[in-house]
Nucleic acid binder design. Structure first.
Lengths: 241, 241
DNA sequence: TAAATAGTGTCTCTAAGACATTATTTG
DNA sequence: CAAATAATGTCTTAGAGACACTATTTA
């Protein structure tokens, strides 16, 4: 039996925030956008790196996802990247200011033309290369755990979905697409198997253009659907989860 | 720029709850545990069926998962079933009492020996058969959406993991295991392929007992690990997500 | 024509699907 | 032995992996 009557709603409420794990690939590395914590009095983890995010504003945000999109636009200026919910975390101890919960989202976007914006209370925002299951810097709150979960989810889904395509600009070659897969998975993939799989899945369409270089030009493609990933019938490596 | 200073923490906080989607298989059907909403004044959706759950108690619950386990034990008496986070929902309108968020978990348990308990403020709790992407009854709040997400997640994971094994009692035959898969997926599976897959995955061990009937007795097995599911190298049906 | 990368073909291997066959119990 | 279900075997097929080979551009 609960000791308090829920009907009264007079009990203490946890803090509620949203955090974003924003991935891109630049310089052939998987990178994540981090914001530096403000130094203002009362702010925990001053100057530490953290996932961009913040408290839900019950007046401005109609729902949690809208809050995530708002913060995403504030940080990156990108209007409609791929966004999916990662999960939620909440405990008495994760924030020194009290019982708090956070709703974590992860976003994938091309790196071209995205310059991190400081904005809000964050002192600075910067791309950080992913190394193993995190970044070099020590993160604020439980953000290392959230980031590790996001990386794990991304790597796992990359085995059997077209997610990495959202890390590329509008038009790309099949080789570029394969390279993004290889960067995220951190292992080489078979070329002909990769191309057959991508073609059979019907997730891309040719555009009437080619990428030129000091070699045979490559056919350019774009995604059929920029919102939803496609699922492949098998994982890449039978050993994978 | 935020209009309010987060440092003060004086802004309004959403309500925070946890909801459970508890699945079992009984009478060869997938069933979900629902609780009836109380009729007390101030309570929304009186007498409607809803997912069991309730507000986080910042004094009793150390974290969100602990809160979920507490509520699970209150409703079913089962101490350690399979439990995984499903996601979170939150909006200004999902609860008439104000901006609210919920952290949804889904649990799998054997039906033997579990009698739903009323407990707490819920008037009654009962197993409801799953039909399609929900149940026959109209659910309170946005619980139909949460339930549909849980069913989708379960069906999807059943294609490539050993999750259904958590719906069975400690000891089971391979035929019983296959039947649970077929109930959840709502389609027949190939017998020899199923057995090869389950054996090769090494998720079960023989117990020195057999199930007798008016026919050849069947070997009994138990799970090697009652906590984590095993991932298969491919989905059952190549057509699946 | 050499360098470089794009793109394809062949052969093998793993595991699922269809379906038949054998095995072991009870009545 | 008949009935019933357990358990296995055979053959086919889809798609990944390894790796060689051909194609097309620029310098």
């Amino acid at each position: 039996m609960p000791r308090k009557s829920p009907a009264s709603l007079s009990f203490e409420r946890p803090l509620t925030s949203v955090d974003l794990v924003i991935f891109t690939v630049r310089e052939t590395r998987l990178q994540v956008l981090l914001a530096q914590r403000p130094e203002a009095p009362g702010e925990p983890y001053p100057l530490a790196w953290a996932l961009p995010g913040g408290f839900i504003d019950v007046d401005r945000d109609a729902n949690v996802e809208a809050c995530a999109r708002r913060k995403l636009a504030e940080k990156t200026g990108v209007a409609s990247p791929y966004l999916e919910q990662l999960g939620s975390w909440g405990s008495r101890t994760r924030d020194p200011r009290g019982w708090s919960t956070t709703h974590a989202y992860f976003a994938l976007m091309p790196s071209d033309g995205v310059e991190p914006r400081a904005g809000g209370y964050a002192a600075a925002a910067r791309w950080h290369p992913v190394q193993g299951d995190g970044v070099k810097e020590r993160l604020a709150f439980d953000h290392a755990e959230i980031l590790a979960t996001a990386i794990e989810r991304l790597r796992s889904k990359v085995e059997y979905t077209s997610l990495p395509a959202f890390l590329l600009p509008e038009e790309f070659t099949l080789t570029e697409l394969q390279q993004v897969y290889e960067v995220v998975l951190d292992r080489p993939l078979n070329k002909s198997a990769f191309r057959t799989r991508v073609r059979d899945a019907g997730l891309i369409v040719e555009v009437p253009r080619q990428r030129s270089g000091p070699n045979r030009p490559a056919q350019l493609y774009r995604l059929k659907d920029r919102r939803q990933p496609v699922f492949f019938p098998r994982t890449f490596n039978p050993r994978a989860e």
